[in-house]
């Protein structure tokens, strides 16, 4: 794996391999000594042009547990400006001998540019670019889903997600998590339905490999998992995407009543951070079906696997 920029970069085999490696990584994390020597002497740079403490910490922990040297660079603020040149930063990192860059950036496509503009030869791992993609989030969601569904039904782990029914609910338009999840879940054979007000579905969504619906109540009884997306009010400058927070919650929020529409085994997922009371109620977020805390823990194992395949994959294969 040269770069991980989009969930579409992963074939079915590649995605399953990454999830299997993540299982192995997770197993080591149950041990007393969590640290592995795998990436000793390699340098991973966490380049965060956009604030995201959760993702940054998760990647830092993943790199450190693989014994990599970790340098974290956080640029304050998230605005795109000439003052924070992505190119100059890339050249600096190259000079510093970085082996891989984990990039978080407010501009869609920033990771593509870092990987392909000819500025440096460093491997790039996209940790969220604007409203484009966030592939490791999709991987950790798939990892979590696969584990839970396998615990219940058993069977070949390579096939657990085939035919799994997943509803992705909410602010699809601004969500990099939704884009990556649709692509990865399609690759793994799941059946995805997006549920959102029409204003929060992008023009062109009809060509995505999934179905869409405006009726959450009708969808919930037939799913294995519901992924609730964060309403990204900070990206809704013009406003007017929905009449009011109250109406959004009434029509698209996952509350206690809707929780009871789900099949008994169905999971409740959220990539965090949550707007409690808007897209998800406390009852839903804290219910036994919720995998939200587990998703955070699994994030470290999945990111260990991604870094491992990016940096040590060739040697190991």
């Amino acid at each position: 794996m040269r770069h991980l920029l989009s969930a579409a970069d992963l074939s079915r085999e590649g995605a399953l391999e990454l999830l299997d490696v993540a299982e192995e990584m997770a197993a080591t994390q149950a041990r007393e000594i969590k640290k592995l020597p795998t990436l000793r002497g390699r340098t991973v740079v966490n380049l965060f042009f956009e604030d995201s403490t959760r993702t940054r910490i998760s990647f830092e922990a993943a790199a450190k547990r693989l014994s990599a040297d970790v340098i974290t660079f956080s640029a304050k603020g998230s605005s795109v400006s000439k003052g924070e040149s992505l190119k100059d930063t890339a050249l600096t990192l190259q000079a510093m001998g970085a082996d891989a860059v984990v990039l978080r950036h407010s501009a869609s496509g920033a990771a593509h540019r870092l990987a392909h503009a000819g500025w440096s030869g460093v491997g790039v791992l996209n940790a969220g670019d604007g409203t484009h993609e966030h592939p490791t989030q999709a991987l950790l969601d798939a990892f979590t889903l696969r584990r839970r569904l396998a615990e219940r039904a058993g069977g070949d782990p390579a096939r657990v997600l085939e035919g799994a029914r997943v509803a992705v609910v909410g602010d699809v338009l601004h969500s990099r998590v939704a884009r990556s999840n649709v692509l990865l879940l399609e690759t793994l054979g799941a059946d995805v339905v997006l549920v959102a007000p029409p204003t929060l579905l992008p023009v062109g969504v009809g060509t995505w490999p999934c179905r869409t619906s405006w009726d959450l109540d009708a969808v919930l009884p037939d799913v294995d998992a519901v992924m609730v997306l964060r309403v990204q009010r900070e990206r809704m400058g013009g406003g007017g995407f929905f009449p009011s927070a109250q109406e959004y919650t009434r029509r698209f929020g996952l509350d206690g009543r809707r929780l009871r529409l789900l099949p008994d085994h169905a999971l409740v997922m959220h990539p965090g951070p949550m707007n409690r009371g808007l897209e998800i109620s406390a009852e839903a977020a804290d219910s036994p079906r919720s995998t939200i805390v587990e998703q955070v823990a699994n994030g470290v194992a999945v990111r260990m696997a991604a870094l491992y395949l990016l940096l040590a994959g060739e040697d190991a294969a």
Binding site: S108, D129, T131, V203, G204, V205, T207, W208
Partner: peptide, 8 residues
Amino acid sequence: VVSSVLGL
């Protein structure tokens, strides 16, 4: 179609 995929 393309803008929807690229998140632009």
